[in-house]
């Protein structure tokens, strides 16, 4: 059932082997590329469903690869970075990457990210992001009515909370950077906006995730941003 194609871009052979072996063992098809140029070519010719992209490539910068691929394709891109600096991840995410993994990562982590991205793909293929009613687990947003419900009960959200929720829902599965969110919601990215964002997100999460057993809808990426998870 997992017959989707994944383009693996990684110049380091042992890491590439680790990834391709893992993919093979879990029934994914894969194509490998070792340079940025080859990656852009492969993305065009093989039309992969997901791209796993290492940021430190020998020829061109990984972020540049993202920009070029985004020129004509919206294929989900998961960035793999050895750099633990947030700035690189944020740059990649702002350039159009969907998610990121930091080396060293565990095999479980890699597979979890792939599953999340697949769910996002399924959503996009169903046209889920364009429907007038969005559903995710018990959460439902009626864009036309401008209201959100959780398990059938209407959520009492402030206008800004509602805006944030819609923004996250429309990008379910994608990590949105703080800058992207504040620019979209407030139109600016001042420090006060980021402080407000933190508070609004915390209160929004409290309204969505009542009690320890409730599913997690919003994932916090400390230092980077937030992501709406697809809940089964």
């Amino acid at each position: 059932m997992n017959k989707i194609t994944i383009l693996v871009v990684e110049d380091d052979a042992p890491v590439r082997n680790l990834i391709t072996t893992t993919l093979g063992a879990h029934d994914y098809r894969h194509v490998a590329a070792t340079t940025g140029e080859a990656a852009v070519m492969a993305a065009a010719s093989h039309n992969p469903d997901i791209v796993l992209l290492d940021l430190g490539l020998p020829d061109i910068d990984g972020v540049e690869v993202i920009r070029r691929v985004r020129g004509w394709s919206s294929v989900p891109i998961i960035v793999i970075s050895a750099r633990s600096e947030d700035a690189d991840k944020i740059e990649a995410l702002d350039a159009g990457a969907d998610d990121y993994l930091t080396k060293p990562f565990s095999v479980d982590e890699l597979l979890a990210r792939l599953r999340a991205t697949q769910r996002r793909l399924a959503l996009i293929q169903n046209g889920g992001d364009r429907q007038s009613v969005y559903t995710n687990g018990q959460l439902a947003i009626d864009y036309a009515k401008g209201c959100a419900t959780l398990a059938g009960e209407e959520l009492h959200l402030t206008p800004i909370e509602y805006k944030l929720l819609c923004l996250l829902a429309q990008n379910t599965g994608k990590v949105l950077t703080h800058k992207f969110i504040t620019k979209s919601v407030w139109g600016s990215s001042w420090e006060n906006d980021i402080a407000s964002l933190r508070v609004f997100m915390a209160t929004l999460r409290k309204k969505l995730e009542k009690g320890p057993d409730s599913p997690r809808y919003i994932q916090t990426h400390v230092g980077i941003g937030y992501r709406m998870l697809k809940v089964e």
């Binding site: 633990s84 700035a87 703080h178 420090e191 933190r198 997100m201 916090t220 400390v222 230092g223």
Partner: peptide, 29 residues
């Protein structure tokens, strides 16, 4: 991880990359 942090701290206190954070988020992470 610890060594990387140590070098960042010791390379001068200016390398703190501070931003506004919710302490709860950090603790949960």
């Amino acid at each position: 991880e610890n060594l990387l942090s140590a070098t960042r701290i010791e390379e001068g206190r200016l390398t703190l990359r501070t931003s506004i954070e919710l302490l709860g988020d950090i603790a949960e992470e």
